[in-house]
Protein backbone atom coordinates (compact mmCIF):
# COMPACT_ATOMS: atom_id res chain seq x y z
CA UNK A 1 0.00 0.00 0.00
CA UNK A 2 2.77 2.42 0.98
CA UNK A 3 4.73 1.50 -2.15
CA UNK A 4 1.67 1.81 -4.38
CA UNK A 5 0.96 5.28 -3.07
CA UNK A 6 4.58 6.39 -3.21
CA UNK A 7 5.02 5.25 -6.82
CA UNK A 8 1.78 6.85 -7.97
CA UNK A 9 2.66 10.13 -6.32
CA UNK A 10 5.79 10.13 -8.48
CA UNK A 11 3.90 9.02 -11.53
CA UNK A 12 1.36 11.81 -11.20
CA UNK A 13 4.23 14.31 -11.42
CA UNK A 14 6.08 12.46 -14.18
CA UNK A 15 3.26 12.60 -16.66
CA UNK A 16 3.46 15.39 -19.16
CA UNK A 17 -0.28 15.86 -19.16
CA UNK A 18 -2.56 16.37 -16.22
CA UNK A 19 -3.26 12.91 -14.86
CA UNK A 20 -6.95 13.72 -15.03
CA UNK A 21 -9.80 13.27 -12.62
CA UNK A 22 -9.85 9.50 -12.96
CA UNK A 23 -6.21 8.98 -12.00
CA UNK A 24 -6.65 8.97 -8.24
CA UNK A 25 -9.94 7.12 -8.48
CA UNK A 26 -8.11 4.32 -10.24
CA UNK A 27 -5.34 4.32 -7.66
CA UNK A 28 -7.95 4.02 -4.94
CA UNK A 29 -9.53 1.08 -6.74
CA UNK A 30 -6.13 -0.59 -7.11
CA UNK A 31 -5.60 -0.14 -3.38
CA UNK A 32 -8.80 -2.03 -2.73
CA UNK A 33 -11.34 0.72 -2.17
CA UNK A 34 -14.46 -0.62 -3.83
CA UNK A 35 -16.57 2.50 -4.25
CA UNK A 36 -14.94 5.89 -4.21
CA UNK A 37 -15.48 9.30 -5.71
CA UNK A 38 -12.04 10.52 -4.73
CA UNK A 39 -10.36 12.35 -7.55
CA UNK A 40 -8.03 14.73 -5.76
CA UNK A 41 -4.48 13.99 -4.73
CA UNK A 42 -4.80 15.24 -1.14
CA UNK A 43 -8.00 13.32 -0.57
CA UNK A 44 -6.45 10.13 -1.90
CA UNK A 45 -3.35 10.56 0.25
CA UNK A 46 -5.40 11.11 3.36
CA UNK A 47 -7.54 8.04 2.76
CA UNK A 48 -4.73 5.75 1.66
CA UNK A 49 -2.56 6.72 4.64
CA UNK A 50 -5.12 6.86 7.40
CA UNK A 51 -8.59 6.08 6.04
CA UNK A 52 -10.71 3.97 8.34
CA UNK A 53 -13.45 3.04 5.87
CA UNK A 54 -11.21 1.12 3.49
CA UNK A 55 -7.71 -0.24 3.06
CA UNK A 56 -5.08 2.20 4.30
CA UNK A 57 -1.49 2.11 5.46
CA UNK A 58 -2.43 2.71 9.08
CA UNK A 59 -5.16 0.09 9.01
CA UNK A 60 -2.85 -2.44 7.37
CA UNK A 61 -0.10 -1.95 9.94
CA UNK A 62 -2.69 -2.02 12.73
CA UNK A 63 -4.06 -5.30 11.36
CA UNK A 64 -0.55 -6.71 11.13
CA UNK A 65 0.01 -5.82 14.77
CA UNK A 66 -3.28 -7.41 15.80
CA UNK A 67 -2.30 -10.56 13.93
CA UNK A 68 1.13 -10.49 15.57
CA UNK A 69 -0.52 -10.14 18.97
CA UNK A 70 -2.62 -13.21 18.28
CA UNK A 71 0.44 -15.35 17.52
CA UNK A 72 2.87 -13.49 19.75
CA UNK A 73 3.92 -16.63 21.64
CA UNK A 74 5.28 -18.01 18.36
CA UNK A 75 7.18 -14.89 17.34
CA UNK A 76 10.68 -13.88 18.43
CA UNK A 77 10.45 -10.94 20.81
CA UNK A 78 12.48 -8.73 18.48
CA UNK A 79 10.04 -9.40 15.65
CA UNK A 80 6.99 -8.58 17.73
CA UNK A 81 8.65 -5.50 19.16
CA UNK A 82 9.49 -4.25 15.69
CA UNK A 83 5.93 -4.73 14.42
CA UNK A 84 4.64 -3.03 17.56
CA UNK A 85 7.06 -0.12 17.25
CA UNK A 86 6.18 0.25 13.55
CA UNK A 87 2.52 0.38 14.47
CA UNK A 88 3.07 3.17 16.98
CA UNK A 89 5.28 5.08 14.59
CA UNK A 90 2.70 4.84 11.83
CA UNK A 91 -0.16 5.84 14.13
CA UNK A 92 1.75 8.88 15.32
CA UNK A 93 1.55 10.20 11.76
CA UNK A 94 3.80 12.98 10.66
CA UNK A 95 3.32 12.20 6.98
CA UNK A 96 2.09 15.71 6.29
CA UNK A 97 5.64 17.04 6.73
CA UNK A 98 7.49 14.34 4.80
CA UNK A 99 5.22 11.94 2.99
CA UNK A 100 7.95 10.16 1.04
CA UNK A 101 10.04 9.69 4.20
CA UNK A 102 6.99 8.40 6.04
CA UNK A 103 6.14 5.90 3.30
CA UNK A 104 9.76 4.79 2.88
CA UNK A 105 9.97 4.26 6.63
CA UNK A 106 7.05 1.87 6.37
CA UNK A 107 8.45 0.05 3.36
CA UNK A 108 11.80 -0.44 5.06
CA UNK A 109 10.04 -1.43 8.26
CA UNK A 110 8.24 -4.19 6.39
CA UNK A 111 11.51 -5.39 4.84
CA UNK A 112 12.97 -5.53 8.33
CA UNK A 113 10.07 -7.73 9.42
CA UNK A 114 10.92 -10.06 6.54
CA UNK A 115 14.55 -10.11 7.57
CA UNK A 116 13.72 -10.87 11.18
CA UNK A 117 11.46 -13.72 10.14
CA UNK A 118 14.19 -15.22 7.98
CA UNK A 119 17.08 -14.62 10.32
CA UNK A 120 15.64 -15.25 13.75
CA UNK A 121 12.83 -17.79 13.46
CA UNK A 122 13.19 -21.52 13.74
CA UNK A 123 12.50 -23.38 10.52
CA UNK A 124 9.20 -24.62 11.89
CA UNK A 125 5.47 -24.36 11.30
CA UNK A 126 5.20 -20.85 12.68
CA UNK A 127 7.63 -19.55 10.10
CA UNK A 128 5.92 -21.50 7.33
CA UNK A 129 2.54 -20.00 8.22
CA UNK A 130 4.07 -16.51 8.09
CA UNK A 131 5.61 -17.27 4.71
CA UNK A 132 2.40 -18.80 3.43
CA UNK A 133 0.51 -15.63 4.33
CA UNK A 134 3.19 -13.39 2.90
CA UNK A 135 3.40 -15.09 -0.48
CA UNK A 136 -0.35 -15.45 -0.88
CA UNK A 137 -0.85 -11.77 -0.16
CA UNK A 138 1.98 -10.78 -2.46
CA UNK A 139 0.64 -12.98 -5.25
CA UNK A 140 -2.78 -11.45 -4.92
CA UNK A 141 -1.45 -7.91 -4.88
CA UNK A 142 0.54 -8.49 -8.05
CA UNK A 143 -2.34 -10.09 -9.93
CA UNK A 144 -4.71 -7.30 -8.82
CA UNK A 145 -2.24 -4.63 -9.88
CA UNK A 146 -1.45 -6.12 -13.26
CA UNK A 147 -5.02 -7.07 -14.13
CA UNK A 148 -6.29 -3.69 -12.98
CA UNK A 149 -3.76 -1.72 -14.98
CA UNK A 150 -4.16 -3.87 -18.07
CA UNK A 151 -7.89 -3.29 -18.00
CA UNK A 152 -7.63 0.50 -17.79
CA UNK A 153 -4.47 1.60 -19.58
CA UNK A 154 -4.64 2.79 -23.12
CA UNK A 155 -1.85 2.10 -25.54
CA UNK A 156 -0.66 5.70 -25.66
CA UNK A 157 2.61 7.55 -25.25
CA UNK A 158 2.28 7.71 -21.50
CA UNK A 159 1.67 3.96 -21.17
CA UNK A 160 5.38 3.25 -20.78
CA UNK A 161 5.41 5.52 -17.74
CA UNK A 162 2.42 3.74 -16.28
CA UNK A 163 3.93 0.28 -16.78
CA UNK A 164 7.19 1.50 -15.32
CA UNK A 165 5.19 2.51 -12.27
CA UNK A 166 3.63 -0.93 -12.16
CA UNK A 167 7.10 -2.49 -12.15
CA UNK A 168 8.22 -0.11 -9.44
CA UNK A 169 5.20 -0.98 -7.31
CA UNK A 170 6.47 -4.56 -7.38
CA UNK A 171 10.11 -3.61 -6.82
CA UNK A 172 10.76 -5.09 -10.28
CA UNK A 173 11.80 -2.20 -12.49
CA UNK A 174 15.56 -2.56 -12.18
CA UNK A 175 15.50 -6.35 -12.63
CA UNK A 176 13.26 -5.92 -15.66
CA UNK A 177 15.72 -3.50 -17.16
CA UNK A 178 18.63 -5.80 -16.41
CA UNK A 179 16.86 -8.74 -17.94
CA UNK A 180 15.07 -7.38 -21.02
CA UNK A 181 16.20 -5.05 -23.72
CA UNK A 182 12.65 -4.53 -24.95
CA UNK A 183 10.81 -1.33 -24.10
CA UNK A 184 8.62 -1.20 -21.05
CA UNK A 185 5.21 -2.14 -22.39
CA UNK A 186 2.07 -3.93 -21.33
CA UNK A 187 2.76 -7.35 -22.82
CA UNK A 188 6.28 -8.04 -21.49
CA UNK A 189 5.63 -6.42 -18.11
CA UNK A 190 2.50 -8.51 -17.62
CA UNK A 191 4.36 -11.67 -18.58
CA UNK A 192 7.25 -10.79 -16.28
CA UNK A 193 5.14 -9.97 -13.23
CA UNK A 194 2.74 -12.87 -13.57
CA UNK A 195 4.73 -15.74 -15.00
CA UNK A 196 8.45 -15.34 -14.40
CA UNK A 197 9.47 -17.96 -11.80
CA UNK A 198 12.80 -16.22 -11.12
CA UNK A 199 11.30 -12.89 -10.04
CA UNK A 200 10.62 -12.95 -6.28
CA UNK A 201 7.64 -10.64 -6.75
CA UNK A 202 5.99 -12.52 -9.61
CA UNK A 203 2.70 -14.31 -9.02
CA UNK A 204 4.23 -17.60 -10.23
CA UNK A 205 7.13 -17.35 -7.80
CA UNK A 206 4.78 -16.51 -4.92
CA UNK A 207 2.47 -19.43 -5.75
CA UNK A 208 5.45 -21.82 -5.77
CA UNK A 209 6.73 -20.60 -2.41
CA UNK A 210 3.26 -20.71 -0.86
CA UNK A 211 2.92 -24.29 -2.09
CA UNK A 212 6.29 -25.15 -0.59
CA UNK A 213 5.19 -23.79 2.78
CA UNK A 214 1.96 -25.80 2.65
CA UNK A 215 3.93 -28.95 1.90
CA UNK A 216 6.25 -28.28 4.82
CA UNK A 217 3.28 -27.68 7.13
CA UNK A 218 1.49 -30.81 5.93
CA UNK A 219 4.52 -33.08 5.94
CA UNK A 220 5.88 -35.18 3.12
CA UNK A 221 3.14 -37.74 2.76
CA UNK A 222 0.06 -35.58 3.19
CA UNK A 223 -1.71 -33.98 0.23
CA UNK A 224 -4.09 -31.54 1.87
CA UNK A 225 -6.83 -29.54 0.21
CA UNK A 226 -4.82 -26.30 0.38
CA UNK A 227 -1.93 -28.19 -1.22
CA UNK A 228 -4.11 -29.46 -4.05
CA UNK A 229 -5.63 -26.03 -4.80
CA UNK A 230 -2.24 -24.36 -4.64
CA UNK A 231 -0.82 -26.93 -7.03
CA UNK A 232 -3.50 -25.92 -9.55
CA UNK A 233 -2.77 -22.23 -8.95
CA UNK A 234 0.91 -22.79 -9.43
CA UNK A 235 0.19 -24.74 -12.61
CA UNK A 236 -1.95 -21.90 -13.95
CA UNK A 237 0.87 -19.41 -13.40
CA UNK A 238 3.47 -21.74 -14.89
CA UNK A 239 1.46 -22.57 -17.99
CA UNK A 240 3.55 -21.57 -21.05
CA UNK A 241 0.41 -21.30 -23.15
CA UNK A 242 -1.14 -18.83 -20.70
CA UNK A 243 2.07 -16.80 -20.67
CA UNK A 244 2.16 -16.74 -24.44
CA UNK A 245 -1.53 -15.91 -24.86
CA UNK A 246 -0.91 -12.24 -24.18
CA UNK A 247 -3.17 -9.49 -22.92
CA UNK A 248 -6.17 -10.81 -24.78
CA UNK A 249 -6.37 -13.83 -22.52
CA UNK A 250 -5.64 -11.93 -19.30
CA UNK A 251 -9.26 -11.44 -18.32
CA UNK A 252 -10.02 -15.15 -18.56
CA UNK A 253 -6.85 -15.98 -16.64
CA UNK A 254 -7.75 -13.50 -13.91
CA UNK A 255 -11.20 -15.03 -13.60
CA UNK A 256 -9.78 -18.53 -13.24
CA UNK A 257 -7.26 -17.22 -10.73
CA UNK A 258 -10.05 -15.63 -8.64
CA UNK A 259 -11.99 -18.87 -8.62
CA UNK A 260 -8.98 -20.82 -7.36
CA UNK A 261 -8.15 -18.20 -4.72
CA UNK A 262 -11.69 -18.45 -3.35
CA UNK A 263 -11.32 -22.23 -3.14
CA UNK A 264 -7.95 -21.79 -1.45
CA UNK A 265 -9.34 -19.45 1.19
CA UNK A 266 -12.00 -22.01 2.09
CA UNK A 267 -9.46 -24.82 2.12
CA UNK A 268 -7.07 -22.95 4.41
CA UNK A 269 -9.86 -22.13 6.85
CA UNK A 270 -11.15 -25.66 7.07
CA UNK A 271 -7.73 -27.33 7.18
CA UNK A 272 -5.73 -25.17 9.57
CA UNK A 273 -8.00 -22.92 11.58
CA UNK A 274 -10.52 -25.23 13.21
CA UNK A 275 -8.64 -26.82 16.10
CA UNK A 276 -11.84 -28.46 17.37
CA UNK A 277 -11.60 -30.82 14.42
CA UNK A 278 -8.41 -32.45 15.65
CA UNK A 279 -9.43 -35.97 16.52
CA UNK A 280 -8.65 -37.13 20.03
CA UNK A 281 -7.22 -40.34 18.60
CA UNK A 282 -4.53 -38.72 16.47
CA UNK A 283 -1.22 -39.94 17.85
CA UNK A 284 1.06 -37.19 19.05
CA UNK A 285 4.18 -36.30 17.15
CA UNK A 286 7.05 -36.04 19.61
CA UNK A 287 8.89 -33.60 17.36
CA UNK A 288 6.10 -31.06 17.28
CA UNK A 289 5.64 -28.58 20.08
CA UNK A 290 3.52 -25.87 18.52
CA UNK A 291 0.02 -25.54 19.94
CA UNK A 292 -2.72 -24.59 17.53
CA UNK A 293 -3.68 -20.97 17.80
Amino acid sequence: MARLLDVHLDLALDRSDDPGTGFWTEVMLLAGWTATDVDRREQAIELLVGGAAGPSVQRAVGAARTAAQAVRPSLPSELYEHVNALHWRVQEGGWERDLHGYLMGIEMGVHLVDGLVEDTMLRDEAREFIRLGKFLERMDNVVTLVAGKAATLKDDLEAALEWTAVLKCAFAFETYRARFSTPVAAEPVTRYLLFDPALPRSAAFCADLALLSVRRIDGERVRSRPGRVLTRLSGLLRDPAAAAAGLGALEALAAEYRELVAQLAAALRSSYFQPGKVAATVPGDPTSRAPQQ
Partner: peptide, 8 residues
Protein backbone atom coordinates in the same frame (compact mmCIF):
# COMPACT_ATOMS: atom_id res chain seq x y z
CA UNK B 1 -2.20 -30.29 24.21
CA UNK B 2 -3.63 -30.02 20.72
CA UNK B 3 -0.94 -29.40 18.16
CA UNK B 4 -1.06 -29.29 14.39
CA UNK B 5 0.58 -32.70 14.45
CA UNK B 6 -1.84 -34.26 16.89
CA UNK B 7 -2.04 -34.54 20.65
CA UNK B 8 0.88 -34.17 23.01
Amino acid sequence: MRTTKGLR
